[in-house]
Design a protein around this nucleic acid. Structure first.
Lengths: 201, 201
DNA sequence: ACCTGAACACCGTTCAAGT
DNA sequence: ACCTGAACACCGTTCAAGT
């Protein structure tokens, strides 16, 4: 299942070179980097780039799949270390940080949580959605997150928090701050400072 | 003070025609509409467009100043009708709605609340910042908004909310929902359901 | 003082010709 | 089957020449 059709040796080499150079170019010039330039740097004709990646989105995704999968896996690592509520916040923090630090990742993840997102991107974003769902539902069972919020809503709001932090300054210095302003709204109204949702009557 | 240098009649006419056509083009093709096309539709050479508007941002701003001023003025209308806390939320709702409905306005207002925003845009965004400041401070005096949040932070978060709603679907159906998830975090933790911040000791 | 529009550099995308 | 690169259409931006 790994490879439906084994690529011809030269095709495979070109494919990999393109991804390498695309990663460099995106990091250097942002997600709008010249596709022609990427092809040239990879030592292939521009037509070859289009053969492998029909549009910029496809190339962006190929470049960032690993980073996206890594984010999804971090969710479980964090969940094993922290109580559900804190784990969710911590993961959202890392997610937002990466969206700002890795140029192009924000737009890509944005399309992944958009209502009418393409089938290609749905596949790529689904592991992130899965991770979010696990964290959110655990926190809801724990009682630290409102039971009426959907995981996808939280992902979209994290995207919003990243956007807000980006406005504040280029890097992600304000993520924690904006995230805390948001999470307070995600919690059920607290009646007490101590633990346990003590029965009222 | 209205006009430092009265423009030559033809220049003034071109200036206005450009803004008119730019408004149509931005509404039709988004904020990335072809500048050359706008010049052609306005019946002027492309150089004339650049003479009046050195870059796309300048043109966008000229097209949307009125809309931006209108938003700022709405703040006072709403403040006269509702208690401070509700007024803020209502205004943020209208602000976010317009950011989504009027193409290009979101990016423009985004630059206005960005840390290192250009001098041109600062001038244009300052009335919005003023409006936000009045509403936020009134709500803080009333005790319905945390005293440690800055107006500019709330403007950035509203931008984030608009972004999140945009991901949810093209129009702004989810703004109220996402805004309420946020505002819960803007309120000081409620100890009581009844009014008045009763003195603790 | 202002306008015009050709000219330039740079894109993305396609496709006939090659291997 | 895959690659090449010229060709095309379309940008933004500049600037010499015009009024």
């Amino acid at each position: 299942m790994a490879q439906v059709k084994p690529m011809r040796a030269d095709a495979r080499r070109n494919y990999e070179r393109l991804i390498e150079e695309a990663a460099v170019a995106f990091a250097e010039h942002g997600e709008g980097a010249s596709l022609d330039d990427i092809a040239k740097r990879a030592g292939v004709g521009s037509g070859t780039l289009y053969r492998h990646f029909p549009n910029r989105q496809a190339l962006l995704e190929a470049v960032y799949v690993d980073a996206i999968e890594a984010i999804a896996m971090r969710a479980d690592e964090i969940a094993a270390r922290l109580p559900p509520g804190e784990a969710l916040v911590e993961w959202l923090n890392e997610l937002s940080e990466r969206m700002i630090q890795v140029r192009g990742l924000k737009t890509l993840l944005g399309s992944a949580v958009t209502d009418g997102s393409s089938a290609v991107l749905t596949a790529c974003g689904s592991s992130v959605k899965g991770a979010a769902t696990r964290l959110v539902e655990a926190a809801q069972r724990e009682g630290t997150v409102r039971p009426d919020v959907e995981p996808i809503e939280i992902l979209r709001l994290a995207h919003g928090v990243a956007t807000a932090s980006e406005l504040a300054n280029g890097e992600g210095k304000h993520i924690r701050r904006y995230l805390s302003l948001l999470t307070e709204g995600l919690r059920p109204e607290r009646r007490r400072a101590d633990g346990g949702p003590g029965p009222e009557n």
